[in-house]
Design a protein around this nucleic acid. Sequence first.
DNA 1: GGGAAAATCAATCATATGGTTGATTTATGA
DNA 2: TCATAAATCAACCATATGATTGATTTTCCC
Lengths: 200, 200
Amino acid sequence: MTEQKHPYLRKDQRRTMIAEAARALILEKGYAALRTRDVASRAGINTSTLHFHVPTKAALVALVAETTRDSFLALLPPVPDPKQPARMQLRAEAAAYHDSLRDHPELAACFAQLHQIAGTEPAIAQMLDGFTQNWCQRYVEILTIGQKQGVFRADLHPLPAALALTGALAAFGPRAPTGLAMFWPVFDETERGFLATQPH
Amino acid sequence: MTEQKHPYLRKDQRRTMIAEAARALILEKGYAALRTRDVASRAGINTSTLHFHVPTKAALVALVAETTRDSFLALLPPVPDPKQPARMQLRAEAAAYHDSLRDHPELAACFAQLHQIAGTEPAIAQMLDGFTQNWCQRYVEILTIGQKQGVFRADLHPLPAALALTGALAAFGPRAPTGLAMFWPVFDETERGFLATQPH
DNA sequence: GGGAAAATCAATCATATGGTTGATTTATGA
DNA sequence: TCATAAATCAACCATATGATTGATTTTCCC
């Protein structure tokens, strides 16, 4: 029995529950069908209580965006390290993303849905852009490290290469958690194009 | 003066105008903010007239999906030809997509928006999947032709490579029409990874 | 020219939806 | 213990929204 009937929770806990409920609904029905009523109902509270904790729908979306980003960040591997083998780090980076798609598909799905309102919600757009750039930058650094280590081609352009790889992997976001079968083949094929020497 | 006040148009023409209006609104405000009233207003007609031509909102979305796909298909280059140079065909394929993003950003933007409702609208999902697979298949064929011509690596796996390239290019969809600066660098970097011999 | 079919519109309906109000219940701390 | 603050809820409000109805205007074609 983990659910009380009327647990008068603290604001932080309740906001967390609200964010989870909203994220689940966005995953199931899409952002366009997100209703504050449904969020409250899924969270097991009254709509008034929802508005007590989250004043407006825009604030609810912002809350979802922030908590989703934080959950994503928590799943990332350690930041790139010039002393570690670049291919290992590249694979670890991709593996962390792969596992997030497999184990927490609501995160990528939620990001994809939030993308569609970024055009009219500058705050959301800024958050998404910041996260995407940060994510891509990790790949840029790993690729640069790999060049210095001599494992990636000397004429590789780290930024376009990182954009290509993150773009290719991001395409699996909407297909998660099923539809990941081609994830590693795509990664392997892309990585092979980056290598300085063709594997025998 | 191309606009009459009350041009009693034929159903086909009116449906085309309605589809264009809806696509423009989806591009501007996102699918979540799409309102039948706004579509009618943008098309210069009464909401009743809208419903006379397109019975429900779901039918409107289906109409948008179909017309968007058709517009996209019309912009594609000739189908892959084993007799033509593969690199030229690959670049032509990418250029057609690039130009569609530059000149008709509403098409890719609309596709991205429609993707978000595919989870609850099987018909939309089927249309999008079919188009995406067809698009990817063109790249698979060009890559296969290129292998036979000896311009691409013999150990290249066409399907994963095509998924990687289309995924990387698709990432530019939401950024169009601005934000295309890295399009060709990303293409060039990816293509270089496919080549059999490193350019000197 | 004139009648039928097609297209359009003003007015309206039923419901959905984000948000508010004021009372009520529970937790907190002096 | 008990007054105060925090959290919750039932009922309600104002507007948004998809869709309908019935009358009106235009086009088609014989």
